[in-house]
Amino acid sequence: MDLVLQLLFTGIGIGAVYALVALGFVLIFRATNVVNFAQGEFSMVAAYLMVVFAVDLGWPYWLSFLIALGGMALLGVIFNLGVYYPLRHRTFLPVIIATIGASILLSNSVLAIYGPQPQVLQGWFDTPGIQLGPVYLDSQYLLIIAVTIALVFFNYWFFEKTLLGKKLQATSQDKEMASLLGISVSTMIMITFIYSAVLGGLAGILVAPVLFVSIQMGSTIALKAFAATIIGGFGDVAGAIIGGLALGVIETFGAAYISVPYKDGFAFLVLVAFLIFRPQGIFGERVAEKA
């Protein structure tokens, strides 16, 4: 039982990271109908920004955190204007290819500026974790889980209870109709990119103390997060979170009880199973919304 609890905690912790990045995938997909393959690189860039401000410049952690997220918001704007906006009237394929290009550009830019050395970023807390009976709770994972829960509520409130959230939803459901109702579609898409970049950045900053800061950290997480969005139901916010958490738990238990070397295989096995038997994912895309 102790083993199960420990694995469950770790699985949820890792899954929460996937969920945060998956959320960014979903939001951009809903707004633009394309998959942003640079979402993982947003995490990596934010983690490096933290290293620059909190480690190299020695600024307070909270200040570095706010500036890094501000930097990510700016990156969201640049990404929207430089990658999506010029191709917005084209089919989805050129946009997807552009996001892949942007992902390569981002990782190689960081490599050129910062070098290939992995970096260490301390966590928020001085205490690495707490022992709760037989289970060790890593403080960074606790923070990641707490932030994910908070984001579930925040997203619900933001998208369902605020005017801006409703405008964003309207834009994602039918751009032409939203435009006829006086909503500035391009502004809404810009806001979506900003929010997705900040979410991706948040995931990167939170996971950096656990996985270290490296050029590859974004792509590793993004691959799983992408699988999580498909499992949860592409285009569904709740699905992204549930899909991420499920993936984290499945791969952790699969590694413990079946095979460690094939840990990544379990995640993709589940993905393939979903693609065959339930391609719309756990929650499915609400077709009525798109009609």
Binding site: L7, Q216, T220, P261, K263
Partner: peptide, 20 residues
């Protein structure tokens, strides 16, 4: 005798197997 795949993000199952 435990193998693992490169670029793993989590080793909790491995550590627990060693412990057990």
């Amino acid at each position: 005798d435990q193998g693992y795949a490169n670029q793993s993000q989590d080793f909790t199952p491995v550590v627990l197997a060693i412990k057990q």
